[in-house]
Design a protein around this nucleic acid. Structure first.
Lengths: 201, 201
DNA sequence: GGCATATTTAAATACGGATTTATAAGTCGT
DNA sequence: ACGACTTATAAATCCGTATTTAAATATGCC
């Protein structure tokens, strides 16, 4: 019976949206009670949707950043809702603006403990200073992502621009660590009580 | 080979000292740089000694509260030092004022885990609400103390006025819990790596 | 150019504060 | 009369904050 491979789940998608028109943020802030806008502090107007929990930073230039989505469908729906909200409050923005995924954050599980002290010696572009932060910071160049690796075998993969890159990075990392012999893989059946990470590779 | 019995260590002694003269706290605060005195907030002047770490609350009436001592000798020495400090800064207090121990706090170890859910049902004058506080609160009437009992077998005994009462309370508690069958006593040798609680009964 | 401001998200470790208990002192508010 | 303020102390659990990483956005400061 072999052990399972790595799994991951997308936790956060950061996307930019180009509304294509300039916006009067002062006016918007007046009309939108839920908006937070303090230009002395930060030049963007902040909107927070709740279902799902997705936030947006809206700038005078008509550029918008949407954060918090866990999948592309939620992202799309949130952009729709934001556009509607803006249109309903006087901003003439297009129905179907361009959306660009800029960052995907995924958490993952290698299902094996990791010897971080050894790993940092054997991996290139790795940093591990446990007194500063309990994870090993690994910069993978292709795909170009950063992966935080914890002793428990849990990881965070960040900087990807597509799910394909996430999947590839997680698998590559797993293969590398296995080859380096820094994984403590326990043999045994796959005991699952509730699925914490859904995507398996 | 039988297991060991309970042990304890005195952690804090609270004592009152009657200096027998009224004091000018404003003047004292001026002269004593280390003094903290904010009468709007609290009517006492606060002094903190460092070796050992013992604090004093000094009141206009010449009454004083000393806290932090872990044994009577440290308490006596602290009172001497405080008297000297006051005399050196113009307060005509007697050399050898009356000292009265008002509270002794001791931590202890029953060297056995405790079933708190069962214990609270079987003990009189016991309260256990783990969502509010992780210890069981047990009020012993003779000696009149309060004992906090934790699942690990560690305890805090508070309210005693003499070490004799502490010792008696800890032993009584141990006997009661043993009799009630809520202690998980592990048989085995006495494995000590550094003495955490010194007084054994 | 770099840093800060702000948004989001996971991982895991550390730290501080809070909780509870007793006790004396003295002052204020209810 | 009671509760709050203050001081000290242990136990153990919870919560919040911080740490790190990425990315876009835009404004201000050095």
């Amino acid at each position: 019976m072999s052990s399972r491979g790595p799994t991951y789940r997308i936790e956060n998608i950061v996307a930019t949206v180009n509304l294509g028109v300039e916006l009067d943020l002062e006016r918007l802030a007046e009309r939108l009670m839920m908006a937070e806008y303090n230009p002395d502090q930060f030049p963007g107007l902040i909107l927070r949707l709740t279902k799902p929990r997705i936030s947006a930073l809206i700038f005078r230039t008509g550029k918008m950043v949407a954060t918090g989505a866990k999948n592309e469908e939620d992202l799309k729906n949130a952009v729709k809702a934001l556009v509607k909200l803006l249109r309903d409050h006087g901003a003439e923005v297009p129905f179907d603006p361009e959306v660009q995924i800029q960052n995907i954050v995924a958490s993952g599980n290698l299902h094996a403990e990791v010897d971080l002290e050894q790993a940092v010696l054997m991996l290139e572009n790795a940093m591990y200073e446990p007194e500063q932060f309990p994870g090993l910071i690994y910069r993978m160049s292709s795909p170009r992502v950063v992966i935080l690796i914890f002793g428990s075998g849990k990881i965070v993969c960040t900087g990807a621009k597509s799910e394909k890159d996430v999947a590839l990075a997680v698998q590559k990392l797993y293969n590398q660590l296995k080859e380096l012999g820094v994984l403590y893989i326990e043999e045994g059946g796959e005991e699952e009580l509730g699925e914490e990470f859904e995507e398996e590779l």
